[in-house]
Design a protein around this nucleic acid. Sequence first.
DNA 1: CGGTATCCGTTCCGATACTG
DNA 2: CAGTATCGGAACGGATACCG
Lengths: 136, 136
Amino acid sequence: MPTMTAAQRREQARRAYDAFLRSCPTHQLLDRISDKWVGLVVSALAPGPQRYSDLARRIAGVSPKMLTQTLRALERDGLVSRTVTPSVPVRVDYALTPLGASLSGLLSAVKDWAETHFDEVHAARQRYDAAHARES
Amino acid sequence: MPTMTAAQRREQARRAYDAFLRSCPTHQLLDRISDKWVGLVVSALAPGPQRYSDLARRIAGVSPKMLTQTLRALERDGLVSRTVTPSVPVRVDYALTPLGASLSGLLSAVKDWAETHFDEVHAARQRYDAAHARES
DNA sequence: CGGTATCCGTTCCGATACTG
DNA sequence: CAGTATCGGAACGGATACCG
């Protein structure tokens, strides 16, 4: 007699798998760089340090909440440095760390792939959509 | 006199920005490869073609729903091919297309970066968490 | 200036049940 | 075997208002 139901076994497998995914470096990195705003923030910082409000202006449409959240996550991972100058009013500069600059290089590779193969992907999508339009 | 309120101007900026993001090839690709299951499916298919149930077994914890959804998205983008053999019972094989194999190469680059710099990121996280633990 | 706190709609995804 | 259909909880993120 089994000590677990099928449902329990499935749930256990899922839990083990989730734990594996969380501990997988590649998956963690993918989670980080695929964040809606991370790519934009990193590319905004690539030319050089920027103040908080500079970033907010360059990345039109970002809410303060998401900008802060993104910057904190990048800072925690050692990709971005945060420097406070206690003047009045305060001035906060964000800059890419060497590690962040290295990530920026990887992002460029992704960008190259995307631009090189975008036409192929786009053509494939149109073919697929056309072929599946009949079935409604 | 302005024809829009500040709120309307902000919303318009956000809309324009969303449209830009949706049309940006890099962002589209990032969205695709960062999907929770895409990396797993592509790496499961890298060694060679697999049947639907093979994939389900190799990727423990994936529900039929997400596996199908992921495979359909990859098929639509021309990254994966789907071959139906009308035997009884039916047999369906999935394989990476040349384009998919090329993406698999890019994912390897991501994996390399992740494994090379994971220790640095991990150390940075511990430093950050330790420094911010006091403030509760 | 540089954030934080809260609310709230939307979207995602796992569980479950059923089909050709 | 290879899916599809539906539901509900959780998490994401935008708007808004407020603080040091």
